[in-house]
Nucleic acid binder design. Structure first.
Length: 148
DNA sequence: CGTTTGACTACGC
DNA sequence: CGCGTAGCCAAAC
């Protein structure tokens, strides 16, 4: 069974990945967890379920002033996952709206529009991370459109 | 110490 | 869809 190595280094890895999320896009806790290779190299079937809480923990202890876009990580339902009505929750929503992200009337973000497809393959290879789940076909990705 | 909690998620109804 | 539940584990009580 996979468990995170010492929490400090695990958090550092999470932050490294979160910093790659571009403005105006969002990732999920489970998506981040899926990118981080387990120490023993064996991926359990419910891999992202195991890591999602730890990713949440890492977000909870995000250092301020280091440019980590913590607001771009949300839960699998597309909602801000901080306690409803908390100062942090409204702050996160405001930050995302400032980046141009729109919320549905039920407070959800459409992954088809704003979901992050992960870093470039080069970056993944360089750091040894797994490619994450994609929310859109690359053909539909605005970033890939005029790549030719 | 035992219990509860938490920025989670997949799954079954 | 929404809601409840099981499973996870480090941290805080």
């Amino acid at each position: 069974m996979w468990k995170p190595p010492d929490p400090d280094s695990f958090n550092a890895v999470v932050w490294t990945i979160v910093k790659q999320i571009p403005e105006g896009q969002v990732a999920t806790y489970g998506q981040i967890a899926n990118m981080i290779p387990p120490p023993d190299g064996v991926i359990p079937p419910d891999y992202n379920r195991l890591g999602a809480r730890w990713v949440g923990n890492a977000m909870n202890s995000t250092p301020d002033g280091e440019g980590i876009p913590w607001q771009r990580v949300i839960n699998s339902k597309g909602e801000v996952s901080l306690p409803k009505g908390s100062p942090g929750a409204s702050k996160q929503r405001t930050l995302l709206e400032d980046e141009g992200i729109k919320f549905s009337d039920k407070g959800r973000i459409n992954f088809k529009v704003y979901g992050w497809n992960g870093p470039s393959k080069d970056w993944l290879d360089e750091h040894g991370f797994y490619p994450p789940k994609k929310f859109r076909d690359d053909a539909d990705d605005p970033k890939q459109m005029n790549l030719f």
